[in-house]
Design a protein around this nucleic acid. Structure first.
Lengths: 244, 244
DNA sequence: GGGCGAGGTGTACGGCGTACACCTTCGATA
DNA sequence: TATCGAAGGTGTACGCCGTACACCTCGCCC
C-alpha cells in the first residue's frame, strides 16, 4: 500500500523523460537518518548529506532551516517508529512494553540518544509520545501529582536508553598486556574489578565483557516501576515530602 | 578589566619586570573550566581559551594533546570537587549524601553533564569515584552481583544529574499569546498540561514553571535506593532473573 | 508571452581543530 | 663563562564545518 508521494492525478500526457523527483523535507530527513546510521552522527555534515542526495549543499536549506532543525526532524523520524500504547488494565505492564518498544526503535539508531539529549525543544511527535505515556499512568489511577514526579524519575529511560557513562574500556588484545593491565586494575580499583567479574554468564573471561545491556536496562526499569507502584498503592502525595 | 590572566602586557624589549609564569596543564584546565562556566561549553574553543590565557592557540598543545584530552581534564577537575565518602553503618544514607555532594559539585558547572556523557574513556579520578561508590554498597553488605546491576541502574544519577530530556518550553511573555498557547496545548497535549500544573507550590501560574529540580532528583534517587535496599533484603541475585 | 515562485547552484566568509616548522628562553653542564 | 639542548611559545597554513547571499532555471498560471 505504498501510496505514491506525488499524486499526479490529472497529469497530462506522460512525457517519456521523467522529471527528476524534487527533494522534499521527508526525503532529506530519511537520508539524514540513514546516513547517520551508517557513518555515525559525528560524520554527518550538511555537505555530506547533500552529496549523498546528489545535490549541492545549499539545496538542503530549502527544506530545513538549519542543522539544528535537521536534527529535530531526525529525532521525529525515530520517535515515529515507536509502537502505540497497548490498551488494557495493567498500567505497569503496558508502560513497560511501550518503553521497551521505544528502546527497540532507538537501538536501530545508535546516534539517537545523543541527539535526543542535545535537543532544546521537543518536536510535536515527541510531545505526543510523552503525552500518551503520561496518559497511561493516569489511566492506571496514579495521581497527576505522582505522575509528574514519576515522569521526571523515568527521565531518559522513557526513551529506552540509559547513557552509558564511561563504558568499560576494552581490554587489549595482547594477552600479556591484558594480564598486566588486569593486575594493575585489581590493585588500583579493587571494587570495580570485583563487580565487573560478578554475575556474568561467561565466567571464563576475566574482564567483564559479558555485560547484558538489555538486562541492565530492564533491571533499572523494573526497580523504578515497582517503586512507582508501591508509592501509588500507599497513596503517596508530594504533600508528604517530610516522609524521610 | 584585565585582558589576560597574566598582566604582563607588552614587555617588548626584554626587560620583564614580572617573569611570566609559564603555562602548565593545571592552569590550562582551570582556565578551561572557568571559561566554560562563564561562556558555556559550546563557546569554549582552543583559540578562545588561549586568548584568555594571553597565549597563542598552539601553545595549549604543549600541555594537552588535543581538545578531547582537554575535556577529559576538565571532567577530572570537577570530579575532584566531590566530597569523600562518610564512614558509617548506613550505606543507603551514605550513598545518598555522596551522590548529593556530586550533584552539588556538578551544579557549579552546568556544562559538566554534557561533557561527562560525551567521554569515551574514564579518567583515573573518575574511576576512583566509581570504585569508592561501589565500595560503599559492598561495605553495606550488598552482593557484588547486585551491586553490579545497581551501579548500572544508577547510571548518570551517580554524578548527581539527570539529563532533562526536552525541558518544558518557556511560555511567551506576552500574556495574550501565552493564553492562546496554553489553550492550544491543553487541547493537543491534555495529559502533559494536567501533570505540569499538578502538585506545584505556586498554583498561581498556569504553566508549570515551579518545577523543583532538587526535589525531582531526590525523588528519583530515593525510589532507586529504596528499591535497591528491598532487593538486598530479600536476597536478590541475578540467578533469579525469572522472577517476573 | 510574461511573470512568478519554488527549488537548486556557486561563491564566499568566518570559525574551528591542529600539523608543522620555527623561534625564545633558561638551566645544566663543560 | 660559553655552549647547548630541551621545554615552552609562535605563525602560518590546511581542510573541514555551517550557512549568508546573489543568482539561475524551471514549470505553471494568467
Amino acid at each position: 500500500m505504498s501510496r505514491t508521494e506525488n499524486g499526479t492525478h490529472g497529469e497530462k500526457g506522460g512525457s517519456a523523460r521523467f522529471p527528476r523527483i524534487p527533494l522534499n523535507r521527508e526525503r532529506v530527513l530519511r537520508a539524514a537518518v540513514g546516513l547517520a546510521d551508517v557513518v555515525g552522527i559525528d560524520s554527518l555534515s550538511m555537505r555530506n548529506l547533500a552529496q549523498g542526495l546528489g545535490v549541492a549543499p545549499m539545496a538542503l536549506y530549502k527544506h530545513v532551516a538549519n542543522k539544528e532543525e535537521l536534527l529535530d526532524g531526525m529525532v521525529s523520524v525515530v520517535v515515529a517508529e515507536i509502537d502505540p500504547p497497548l490498551p488494557g488494565p495493567d498500567w505497569k505492564g503496558a508502560v513497560r512494553e511501550r518503553v521497551l518498544s521505544a528502546r527497540h526503535a532507538l537501538l536501530r539508531h545508535p546516534w539517537a540518544p545523543q541527539v535526543i539529549e542535545s535537543r532544546t525543544q521537543a518536536p510535536p511527535i515527541v510531545l505526543d509520545y510523552m503525552n500518551s505515556l503520561i496518559g497511561m499512568f493516569l489511566a492506571g489511577g496514579l495521581s497527576a501529582d505522582l505522575t509528574h514526579h514519576v515522569m521526571h524519575a523515568l527521565g531518559s529511560r522513557m526513551w529506552g536508553f540509559t547513557q552509558e557513562v564511561f563504558p568499560t574500556p576494552q581490554p587489549p588484545a595482547n594477552p600479556e598486556a591484558r594480564e598486566a593491565m588486569f593486575r594493575q586494575a585489581a590493585e588500583t580499583y579493587p571494587h570495580i574489578v570485583q563487580i565487573a567479574t560478578a554475575g556474568l554468564h561467561d565466567e571464563g573471561s576475566a574482564v567483564g565483557r559479558g555485560c547484558d545491556d538489555q538486562f541492565e536496562f530492564e533491571f533499572a526499569l523494573d526497580v523504578l516501576l515497582d517503586g512507582f507502584e508501591r508509592l501509588h498503592n500507599q497513596g503517596w502525595s508530594s504533600a508528604s515530602r517530610a516522609q524521610r
